[in-house]
């Protein structure tokens, strides 16, 4: 009897443990949702030719304004192009833009941040004041101004976003660099005569890369959204490129009846941005917890 009691007691706690642990796993549900969306987005971009049912540029004027159907899951636009195929191919442009811009941001921001943090003094002062100015300025307006001045094109959109976005990375890199540079092994490397450039890029940079990568993930959703906004304003990709923002803008003229022309490309933008933001949010939470402990 006593043994049975003891068994029940122990296992009662165990059963409750499992239940509570399950609750904790469910806590990261949002992160898993984000990760799933991102994976699907990347797979779509890679396998676009196999997923798309038609050539995204193929016009068929006899088949204009078809509502969503089995043949055209997302309907057709004013030129009879299959919107599903265009959205699928658009994922490539979005992904390419997101990655390219992030790489540019990362490179410029990190380099300037490392230089500022490592050398300090006047160089640091100048770089940081420039970041102050750019960050004090509304990013969408600045991006529009730059993109407009450079002339509308995909490349110029990316440059514009990079110009408004790098200060964040620079600040993060600088702060981390200043922490790391006084560590003993850096001092030691300096003492044996390692050059500054090598010190920065092969000793300090590897130490500070992980928060920057987290920052990049958190930022990707915003980059894609900003790029789509510029595309919508006609500052990015030009027709007939199947860029999502541009597609929403093309469908605008027909919004009173053919909602799907703008509807599906916009939904794609929302989903992808949501995916990155969900994951970024979870990453930030986890980092936060790590810092608290």
């Amino acid at each position: 009897m006593k043994i049975l009691d003891k068994w029940l007691m122990e296992h009662k706690y165990k059963i409750q443990d499992v239940k509570l642990m399950m609750n904790m796993i469910r806590e990261s549900f949002l992160a898993k949702l984000g990760l799933t969306i991102i994976t699907m987005f990347i797979l779509t971009a890679i396998f676009a030719p196999f997923i798309a049912t038609q050539d995204p540029l193929m016009q068929d004027l006899t088949n204009r304004f078809q509502p969503p159907s089995l043949e055209h899951p997302f309907g057709t636009d004013h030129l009879g192009r299959d919107i599903f195929s265009r959205v699928v191919y658009g994922s490539r442009i979005s992904l390419m833009m997101g990655i390219t811009v992030t790489l540019i941001l990362f490179t410029i921001g990190t380099t300037l941040g490392l230089i500022a943090g490592f050398f300090g003094g006047a160089v640091d002062e100048i770089i940081m004041r420039i970041t102050d100015i750019i960050m004090a300025f509304p990013s969408l307006i600045l991006a529009i101004a730059v993109a407009a001045a450079l002339g509308p094109s995909l490349l110029n959109t990316m440059i514009a976003i990079a110009i408004v976005g790098w200060p964040r990375y620079a600040r993060l890199a600088r702060a981390n660099c200043m922490q790391v540079k006084n560590e003993l092994y850096i001092e030691a490397a300096r003492a044996i005569g390692v050059s500054n450039l090598r010190l920065i890029f092969s000793h300090i940079f590897p130490m500070i890369i992980s928060p920057l990568i987290v920052q990049a993930t958190i930022n990707l959703g915003g980059v894609i959204l900003l790029a789509a906004g510029l595309g919508f304003l006609g500052l990015g990709a030009q027709p007939p490129t199947p860029e999502w923002g541009l597609m929403v803008s093309e469908g605008r003229r027909f919004i009173s009846r053919q909602w799907w022309i703008s509807g599906f490309p916009g939904l794609a933008i929302l989903l992808v941005a949501l995916g990155f933001n969900l994951l970024g949010d979870a990453l930030r939470d986890i980092l936060d917890v790590r810092m608290r402990r």
């Binding site: 706690y13 443990d17 509570l20 904790m24």
Partner: peptide
């Protein structure tokens, strides 16, 4: 009396 804390590190 038993009180547990269910943290990321474990229980």
């Amino acid at each position: 009396l038993r009180t547990y804390f269910y943290t990321y590190r474990g229980v």
